[in-house]
């Protein structure tokens, strides 16, 4: 469980941005890759807890999960994987470790006023 550390990092990043914009934050939109090592539910829970007594208290976390996308050298195309247990092109079966998406852990937007 390192989601609390992650939640605190989100608060740091967002607070900095909110102060810069002199805005109040209603919601924080995140992209969380399947391979980021972060569990969305645990992050929601930790975020709520970590926000208490901060200017972000009451703000929502909107998490978009990003699937694993690899580049298949045989198809010469990016392919989305169904499973994190099998890094093979779903179309032709060629193994690929050429990761293009799935490790994201970023704030992408803020709902502010």
């Amino acid at each position: 469980m390192h989601e609390l550390s992650i939640a605190m990092s989100i608060i740091d990043v967002v607070s900095e941005e909110a102060t810069r914009r002199k805005a109040r934050v209603d919601a924080v939109h995140l992209k969380v890759g399947v391979l980021s090592g972060v569990v969305a539910d645990a992050l929601q829970f930790s975020y709520e807890m970590a926000c208490q007594d901060t200017p972000l208290q009451g703000s929502r976390l909107v998490i978009e999960e990003v699937p694993i996308v690899v580049y298949c050298s045989r198809c010469q195309a990016e392919r989305t994987l169904d499973s994190m247990q099998l890094f093979c092109c779903p179309a032709c079966g060629t193994p690929s470790g050429d990761l293009r998406h799935g490790k994201e852990l970023e704030v992408v937007a803020l709902e502010i006023q």
Binding site: I10, V13, R21, E106, V107, V108, E111, I112, Q113
Partner: peptide, 10 residues
């Protein structure tokens, strides 16, 4: 409220 784009690595 308005939506502003920010790209910040957590």
């Amino acid at each position: 409220p308005r939506l502003v784009e920010v790209r910040k690595n957590i």
